[in-house]
Design a protein around this nucleic acid. Structure first.
Length: 277
DNA sequence: CGAGTTTGACCAGCGC
DNA sequence: GCGCTGGTCAAACTCG
């Protein structure tokens, strides 16, 4: 498949001398503010373009896979089977709206009254790659695998293992139509922020965590030095906090994080992200 | 040795 | 009630 319009060009980013540049005088600050405003306008324009691309792609997808699946790919629904022709005949279009790929498994959740947020992520893989791994920035623990009726490829079940009480589950299965495509179905919402690469590595390896602690301790000792460097340190901390706040506000949006994950991998694309109240 | 994966068994919901 | 199916559990196993 060709590169997807949703895949952001992450090399665009900020100019090297932008927000992180040293600013000592009010004139410099004013200049900095002007530059950041300009960047903001540019980014807004890029976002608009990206949204247009998304709409165009979604329209194409709807054309390709027909009206039933088109419902499944809209933003208002939770999910649907990627192969609607294989759905049980007893399922109406309305049922499809409330079902995960095979329908009745969703009923228990419906009865409980709280509908978890469900989204799907389609990821293209190497034909030679037989694994069921979708890299999306979170850390998952596999707890089961099953061969389902409508697809000869096994379905793998994952739980989010980054936070102990995170309720999010993920099902990964190769598409019955195109076995190069992995379909990841996410159920629920993470009760924690999206882990950074470092955090994932820390969770995977205790050694990495120890190294990170050592780095933190080194920085703490640096703070104690004080003197002429204190102002620089304060500015550095201010910048750090600003970046963290920006990152935090962006990563709170699951759609955004999914798109970023797709962009990073360069091979994924979100087909539907369903938001339910 | 601890964490993650595999895989057969078990359970619950659904249709007949 | 029975069989089918998807989802989950848990013991055994693997790996670093």
């Amino acid at each position: 498949m060709e590169s997807h319009p949703l895949c952001l060009d992450l090399t665009i980013g900020y100019p090297k001398q932008s927000i992180l540049q040293e600013t000592n005088s009010p004139v410099c600050l004013h200049e900095e503010l002007r530059r950041v405003t300009e960047e903001n306008v540019k980014l807004t324009s890029m976002l608009a373009t990206m949204c247009e691309s998304y709409d165009a792609l979604r329209a194409q997808l709807i054309d390709m896979i027909g009206p039933t699946a088109a419902v499944a790919s809209s933003d208002e629904v939770r999910s649907g089977s990627p192969a609607p022709a294989k759905r049980k005949s007893s399922e109406s279009a309305g049922d499809a709206v409330n079902s995960v790929s095979t329908g009745h498994s969703y009923k228990k959740v419906k009865e409980e009254g709280s509908k978890p947020k469900i989204s799907k992520l389609y990821s293209r893989t190497d034909p030679s790659d037989s694994g069921l791994v979708v890299r999306d920035g979170y850390q998952w623990r596999k707890y089961g695998q099953k061969v389902t009726k409508d697809n000869p490829c096994p379905r793998a079940y994952f739980r989010c293992s980054f936070a102990p009480l995170c309720p999010v589950k993920k099902k990964v299965q190769r598409s019955a139509d195109d076995q190069c495509v992995l379909v990841a179905t996410y159920e629920g919402e993470h009760n924690h922020h999206q882990p950074s690469l470092v955090e994932v590595q820390n969770a995977v390896s205790r050694k990495t965590a120890v190294a990170a602690d050592g780095f933190g301790a080194a920085r703490a000792s640096e703070k104690k030095d004080g003197g002429a460097e204190s102002k620089e340190i304060q500015q550095s901390e201010l910048r750090e906090r600003l970046v963290k706040d920006m990152a935090s506000s962006l990563t709170k949006d699951p759609s955004f994080t999914a798109v970023i994950a797709a962009a990073i991998s360069g091979r994924m694309f979100v087909v539907s992200t369903a938001q339910e109240n």
